[in-house]
Design a protein around this nucleic acid. Structure first.
Lengths: 136, 136
DNA sequence: ATATGTGCAAAGGGTTTGCAGATAT
DNA sequence: ATATCTGCAAACCCTTTGCACATAT
């Protein structure tokens, strides 16, 4: 919990219970949308309002605490800010795995005449677990 | 125009004027959101309604005629269905360039234990034109 | 002490829906 | 001929906003 407080303060945000709760929820889930955060966070803080979540999601994005993961045909999810990475999105179970962008992969993304700031890579397919299930 | 008719029929959709107009708009723009399609299409067909665009965007996605390009912090854009490719999104002028995924790049996306169906790669940065401008 | 954050309820705006008339096949 | 599509208006629901009270620093 103290980690979230530090994270917020480091990024010029006051550490309120609402914000640390939201961050905890995002951190535990890995990738999570607004409604799911709301459901999750209400368990400990029933009074925490949806409006507060919306306000803080915007604020925490602006202050580089979290980042948006736009999703095909559904609401954006959010994750804690970290280095660029690849999302492996399972179309069967919905789970999202992170996969590192290795140095060799990074070179591949180096496209001439384009000054890259950040990469957003979503790979849709079937995860290992679901591949096994469909074999049965 | 006849191309759009063929494209629609090939994918089990009736070829209405509304649909060909929407496809023409998407094709010309390359990447375009719903409101922009509406503005564009109204010039030739003032009566064409937003509701019709929404209905058809959903339908044409389902029938593999177009695909969604989710965007960070803004409304999704749409493009004609084509092979996976990389989007180079300029954070300065907003333009989106397509970049081919070469065979070597494709191998890089081959992540073990994940059965890839389709890749969605958005690279945010500064395009060549805008790099030149900021040098002046 | 005070600037900032929160919760509530209302407003706003984008998207969807139902239906009667129109259209593609 | 008929199943499907369109346009309109209303409904819906997600997101934002304003304000009085509460809280972090």
């Amino acid at each position: 919990m103290t980690n979230y407080i530090t994270l917020l303060k480091k990024n010029d945000l006051k550490a309120t219970i609402q914000r640390t709760s939201i961050l905890k929820s995002i951190d535990h889930a890995g990738h999570i949308n607004i409604d799911e955060i709301y459901e999750d966070v209400k368990e400990q803080h029933p009074a925490l309002s949806l409006a507060t979540i919306y306000k803080n999601i915007i604020l925490m994005q602006q202050n580089n605490v979290i980042i948006e993961v736009p999703m095909n045909g559904e609401k954006s999810k959010f994750e804690l800010k970290k280095d660029d990475h690849i999302h492996l999105i399972c179309q069967h179970c919905g789970e999202i795995q992170d996969s590192k962008i290795t140095k060799e992969k990074e070179q591949i993304l180096n496209i001439k005449n384009f000054q890259l700031n950040n990469a957003q890579i979503n790979l849709y397919g079937v995860c290992q677990k679901c591949q096994r299930i469909s074999l049965k």
